[in-house]
């Protein structure tokens, strides 16, 4: 971490994690903006939550999984599935290389 100042964000590190390519000047712009935002958000730190449980569902319903069955009306043909891709090769999606990269 470059800085330990309250609310500060290491924008270049976070942008890398989030795969957000930054243009020239954006690191500086976002650093200022996001640090101000995080400073405002930091007010919640004063609340005591030690005895509170974290819950993901607020209406007390439960998540359900659907049956593990093929639903033919939702199946896409290979042509449909590939139809929106910018680059395909012999029925496959072409993805950017991720191995052997620094």
């Amino acid at each position: 971490m470059k800085s330990a100042k309250a609310g500060s964000i290491d924008v270049s590190h976070i942008a890398k994690l989030a795969k957000i390519p930054l243009k020239k000047g954006e690191e500086e712009k976002f650093s200022g903006q996001l640090s101000r935002v995080m400073e405002y958000f930091g007010q919640i730190e004063t609340l005591d939550t030690k005895s509170v449980e974290s819950r993901g569902q607020m209406t007390l319903e439960e998540n359900r999984l659907r049956d593990d069955e093929v639903t033919p009306d939702r199946m896409l043909t290979q042509k449909e599935a590939l139809g929106q891709a910018k680059r395909t090769h012999k029925g496959f999606f072409v993805v950017p290389a991720v191995l052997n990269k620094p």
Partner: peptide, 15 residues
């Protein structure tokens, strides 16, 4: 979108 993605990444990042 960039701001929210970055704040979200930061708020859930290790540490």
């Amino acid at each position: 979108a960039k701001r929210r993605i970055m704040i979200g990444t930061h708020a859930a990042a290790s540490g």
